[in-house]
Amino acid sequence: MMHSDIKSRPAYQALVPDLAGSRHLLVIEGDALPPGRLATLSNTFAPVADSLHTWLTGAPAVEGIAGKLWQLGSVEDVLDTLACATRGYGMGDRLYVLGTEPFLWSVAGAAALIGFGPGQLQLEHAGSLRRRVWCTHCHVTTENVTTGIVACRGCSRHLLVRDHFSRRLGAFMGVMVDAEAPGEIPAIEEVFA
């Protein structure tokens, strides 16, 4: 399970339908789905099946999911579809997102742009704990980081991945690890598998 005492990072929780909502949209990163999770989600969301749409990325076709199922290629397709949905989103809409941390925050950011408030949004983490890392020096993000120190894709500096998280960027902060003593780079270890 993901647990941390990083104050700037939210506590992710298992998705449950908010019965106060009038329309429900479940967005799932197919590649991050643990085995069997789709079936349990389907059960959990059965009470709102009549007003539920599910968007699933990247996974093979699935049977028996509650509500209306749409398959989308990637997170970019999700963002495009969200932004140009022909139906408007209203105050009774609820959005539920399941996936890796970068996926969650990409979708949450797009939802905020079209007016979803925090009370209309639920996020459940699934899959890898790999991080998106934002380089404080060159502002380039490096994806899929599994080590506590990573070479920046933009400026090649070795960055220490700090436990400080920006929801706007969906990323952790990376700061040059050997600035005070150039060349002194601690051993690089896998920590976010």
Partner: peptide
């Protein structure tokens, strides 16, 4: 970093401060 912290809530931007939380 302001560019990293902009838009954060009070608890979020104080996240890295030790002991006080």
């Amino acid at each position: 970093s302001l560019e990293f912290d902009v838009g954060m809530s009070f608890m979020e931007w104080h996240g890295p401060v030790p002991l006080a939380h």
